[in-house]
Structure formats: structure tokens, C-alpha cells
């Protein structure tokens, strides 16, 4: 299992568009991809749970990947979050 702490920078937080793109990205990996945020763990492969997490701009999250391709998943996905998730 690998993980990385990061900050959400999207002005409007995890709304529909970034959640949609992020879930598509995460689904491409075999390993599990989760976001820990304010005491809960959310499945990144689901747009519904990502939106339900209600993550705001400036929130600190932890990205956790667990499985065969965890290293590449952590790299790619954290880079994507850093880049503002297409916003």
C-alpha cells in the first residue's frame, strides 16, 4: 500500500466534472484507489462517492492506492489532482 497527502486546489472543490474525470482515471487501474478525508475513506472509482465526500477547495486529503499497480496509480492520479483535475 502506498499513500500521499495532498491539498485539493479546485476552486469549487470536488464537483461533478473533476469527480467524473477522477473516477475514470482511477477505474483504469487494477489496484484499489481511495481518498481519506475528514475521518472517512472514499472509493475513487465511484463518481457518486467522490461527490458525496463533499471535498472543498483547500481541503487536505490522503490518496491511498493498494494493489499490483499501486505505484503508477499513485503517481498518475496525484499528478492529476495536482493539475487541478481539468478545471
Amino acid at each position: 500500500m502506498v499513500s500521499k497527502k495532498m491539498t485539493i486546489k479546485n476552486e469549487q472543490g470536488m464537483h461533478m466534472r473533476p469527480a467524473s474525470l477522477l473516477s475514470q482515471k482511477a477505474t483504469a487501474f487494477t489496484c484499489s484507489v481511495k481518498i481519506n478525508y475528514s475521518g472517512n475513506s472514499y472509493d475513487c472509482k465511484s463518481i457518486m462517492f467522490l461527490m458525496a465526500a463533499c471535498i472543498k477547495c483547500g481541503s487536505d486529503i490522503e490518496l491511498v492506492c493498494d494493489g499490483p499497480d499501486e505505484e503508477k496509480a499513485l503517481n498518475d492520479i496525484s499528478e492529476f489532482i495536482e493539475s487541478g483535475m481539468g478545471d
Binding site: 461533478m16 466534472r17 467524473s20 472509493d43 465511484s46 463518481i47 457518486m48
Partner: peptide
């Protein structure tokens, strides 16, 4: 249009 496209992403979601 993205509002409606979002509906498709929602229903196709594994959790849905």
C-alpha cells in the same frame, strides 16, 4: 449540456 452528460456518468457508475 454537461448537466445531462453528468446524468449518464452517474447511472453508469459502479456504485449505481
Amino acid at each position: 449540456a454537461e448537466i445531462l452528460e453528468g446524468h449518464i456518468v452517474m447511472i453508469m457508475d459502479p456504485s449505481m
